[in-house]
Amino acid sequence: MLRGVLGKTFRLVGYTIQYGCIAHCAFEYVGGVVMTCWLLCRVELILELPAYYESSSKLEEHLLDFLSFKPAQMIYILKGFQLKFKNCLSFSVLDHQWSLQFKIQILFLQKILVDIFMVSKGKFCHRGDIVIAKSPSDPKSNICKRVIGLEGDKILSSSPSVFFKSHSYVPTGHVWLEGDNLQNSTDSRYYGPVPYGLIRGRIFFKIWPLSDFGFLRDSPNGHRFSDD
């Protein structure tokens, strides 16, 4: 009796480990399905001002840099992985010498948009592919962007809020990633080129929503590709 129960337990544990390992290998080396979740909601901005902002002009300058593409007090799209903060998201700007902290509070949720994609694994990609990569500033979250430039390419690196156009070259072993929605995307224009090692896979097929079922479309920002 006891022997039978023990035997069954061991067999169950064994099968769990075996199939877990097979699943791990499949997801790591072959491919799988990813889900991206977008929230459409109304947000409010709460600022916590450090004491050293004596003059408001300095603050406005900093805020304009950051908010020029992230307008507050309007319908705003947030990425799903930030949901773990529940109703209080905090950002900090570390690009500047001073760090400025502020919170965005979700007032009410309007809609949840879910996209499901198929991914194929492999580190190597071409210009125009949509890839999944680990975020350079937070290794636990993933980003999903389009490859604009490979190593050695010359790209337009200026952010949308800057009037001066600046060009730069992508260093060896890096790629230049940009979102398709240039107005509302935190991408290589902010954190610079991304190393190849962070890329996890290439997205090639959209499953959900069914209205968009099929292979993915080309980039709407074709003019940003480098012509070598």
Binding site: K140, G173, G197
Partner: peptide
């Protein structure tokens, strides 16, 4: 696994120049 390291640890990394 949670990307926690301390100062002074010896770690291996994927090279940023050559994946």
């Amino acid at each position: 696994r949670n990307f926690e390291v301390q100062r002074g640890d010896i770690v291996s990394l994927v090279s940023p120049k050559n994946p």
